[in-house]
């Protein structure tokens, strides 16, 4: 579904992605972990065409991702993105956020977009909150609306960039529960996260990145339970015992 081959990306002289090769198959959940600044967000943004890149290829459902070509909009409809800071449209209600792109990017009729939107809100546990403004919702609720907004495009894959990092600890669980549910339904997901227990439980595979390279990748149990690379071991030791 998502194929990344020898991806090279730099900001000026700063080489941020240094030959990334990885793939996410249909129905798979892949978690990407790694220290701050290792290029995880940049990698996701290249997959969605929010950033261009200098070398290698990124393909989604067989189509090349190239933000300079008009077809990029068709590619973006295949992969939706959920952001760390939700990025809801503050001037639209929960339902308004969800139906915006189906109506104005896909040309769906308002009535059917609204019916689908209501069903999605129910799915993320927010039935009845159609008319709520983003500012009236908690962070966890806003992120669940953002997930529903991403699903409204009927994407073939969803990208998550640290979806729980901006949340108060007591709100993390409700968002992870929605994501767990999505994974169970067979959604293809690429998830950048610091939630190691989520990765261990939900991910089919885990990719550990450092300094713009894939250091180690494999089954979640293997990478998280018995990492082979010293850098992975070191990273996991630090995240799992932050005070130690």
């Amino acid at each position: 579904m998502i194929e990344i081959d020898n991806l090279q990306k730099s900001f000026g002289a700063n080489q941020v992605l240094n030959g990334i090769t990885m793939r996410v198959d249909e129905g798979e959940v892949v978690c990407v972990i790694g220290p701050s600044g290792s290029g995880k967000s940049t990698l996701l943004r290249c997959v969605n065409g929010l950033e261009g890149y200098q070398g290698g290829t990124v393909r989604v459902a067989g189509q090349q991702v190239d933000r300079t070509r008009p077809e990029i909009r068709a590619v973006r409809r295949q992969v939706s993105m959920v952001f760390q800071r939700f990025n809801l449209f503050p001037h639209r209600t929960a339902l308004g956020n969800i139906i915006e792109a189906p109506i104005f990017a896909l040309g769906e009729a308002r009535a059917s977009a609204e019916a689908h939107g209501r069903a999605l809100l129910a799915r993320v546990g927010l039935a009845g909150r159609e008319g709520a403004w983003p500012s009236e919702l908690s962070g966890g609720q806003q992120q669940r609306v953002a997930i529903a907004r991403a699903l409204a495009m009927r994407p073939r894959a969803v990208l998550f960039d640290e979806p729980t990092s901006a949340l108060d600890p007591e709100l993390v669980g409700e968002v992870l529960a929605v994501m767990r549910d999505l994974a169970r339904d067979g959604m293809t997901m690429m998830v950048v996260t610091h939630e190691m227990s989520f990765a261990r439980e939900v991910a089919d595979r885990v990719v550990f990145m450092d300094a713009g390279r894939v250091v180690e990748a494999g089954a979640a149990a293997a990478v998280l339970g018995a990492p082979r690379e010293p850098r992975t071991q070191d990273f996991l030791r630090r995240v799992l015992q932050p005070l130690g």
């Binding site: 929010l50 909009r73 939706s80 449209f89 503050p90 104005f104």
Partner: peptide, 29 residues
Amino acid sequence: DHGTIEAAESLGLSRLRILTRVVLPQAVR
């Protein structure tokens, strides 16, 4: 908020729609 513009881009909205449906309504408010 630039994040809302990126969200609109990531959803496949056109440049014109982003300007008229996302940027201007927020700027006017």
